[in-house]
Amino acid sequence: MTADRNAHDRLSPELLFPSPRPEVESLHAYSAPLEGRRQMLRLDFNENTIGPSPKVVEALRAIPADHIAIYPEYDGLKEAVVANLGLPLQPDQVGLFNGVDAAIHAIFHAYGDRGETLLTTTPTFGYYTPCAQMQGMAIEAIPYEGEGFAFPLERIRNALQGAPRLLLICNPNNPTGTRLAPERILELAAAAPQTLVVVDELYEAFTGDSLLPLADFSALPNLLVLRSLAKTAGLAGLRIGFTIGHAAVVDRISRVTGPYDINSFAVTAAFAALNDQAYVDDYVAEVIQARAWMAEQLRAAGVRHHLEGGNYLLIWPQGDPAAVDQALREAGILVRAMTGKPLIDGSLRVSIGTLEQMQRFWAAYRRIEAIPA
């Protein structure tokens, strides 16, 4: 017995548990440095920087204790999303998910298969790639073009001729802010009926050029839009996101999720947030104002930056980016280093908050970089 135990102890760790699929073995877990952020000015993850509507907080506090003990109910939530959008959609065209990350995972689970191809751009949101890898998909990531990070429209058009399984466009793109006109996206979807064209519109509110008002999902059933209440309504901590598209596609994606993926608190908060669009609109307007102010300061100071869409910008420090990042952290301000990202290595992504918050950031950044007044 002792000899057998000693022999077991000498086995390599890989032999002590069942082997996962080869695709999983080659993955690295998607992780982000989310600890120790609560007392800081959080300009690192493009979140709402002031919190949700007071009506959301009031609704959460009013949840009866016995409701915590029962599974969540979703009656009316899809209808509330449709009403908030104000578009001729049906409730079965809306899918409910535990954040857009879960929706993205479900899309790949439902439609991605080994040997098929994900077509996307680079740099873009980092979660698309591991979702494709876990399905054994090939990835064709086409770089944005030039110093202005223009969308590589012709190269995407050409790549669609190979009938990739999925085309994923973040619009406006995170982290470059690149925007593609809705009409061009509709053209891409029409030209590739065998490709599911997924448009990630999490930051659309800050640019105002959604394709939803133009989309006819009956004519383009291969088109799917992602939306969230994280960036605008301040519900990132509760995790709730939506897919909007043809009912049959939404149904297939919903089939690969759990029966109660969205918790009761998120449902309650979503109803309250959707019913207080004025609060969201006011916050978005304040961010747009602060974004314009920030761009003016950067231009006047001659600081290299890129700002096109979304509630974020890219900035290239004169000093060592890691040192600037750390100095900002020590000043109580968090930004996101783009270290190793194609085309934008050496930059910092800075989320845009309120005017007061951006004034605080700019004062700290000027001091760190010794930018004269």
Rank of each mutant, 00 (worst) to 15 (best):
T121F: 05
T121W: 04
P123V: 03
P123G: 04
T124K: 02
F125H: 15
F125A: 15
G126I: 12
Y128A: 05
T129N: 11
C131A: 15
A132G: 13
A132K: 02
Q133C: 07
G136P: 06
E140P: 05
I142W: 11
E145G: 07
E147R: 11
E147S: 13
G148P: 06
A150Y: 15
F151Y: 15
F151D: 04
F151A: 01
P152R: 01
L153K: 10
I156N: 08
I156D: 07
I156V: 15
N158I: 15
A159H: 12
A159P: 13
A159G: 13
A159M: 13
A159V: 14
Q161N: 12
P164T: 03
P164W: 06
R165C: 10
R165V: 08
L166D: 00
L168G: 02
C170W: 00
N171V: 02
N171W: 01
P172K: 00
N173C: 15
N174Q: 14
P175I: 00
P175Y: 01
T176S: 14
T176H: 06
R179M: 10
R179L: 11
R179V: 12
P182R: 04
E183G: 13
R184W: 10
R184S: 15
R184I: 09
I185K: 02
E187K: 12
L188T: 02
A190R: 13
A192D: 04
T195R: 08
V197F: 04
V198T: 12
D200P: 12
D200C: 09
D200G: 06
L202K: 01
Y203D: 08
Y203T: 07
E204Y: 00
A205K: 05
A205V: 00
T207C: 03
G208C: 07
D209W: 07
D209M: 11
L211G: 00
L211I: 11
L212W: 07
L212N: 08
P213N: 12
L214T: 03
A215L: 04
F217R: 04
S218D: 11
L220Y: 07
L223E: 01
L224Y: 12
V225K: 00
V225C: 05
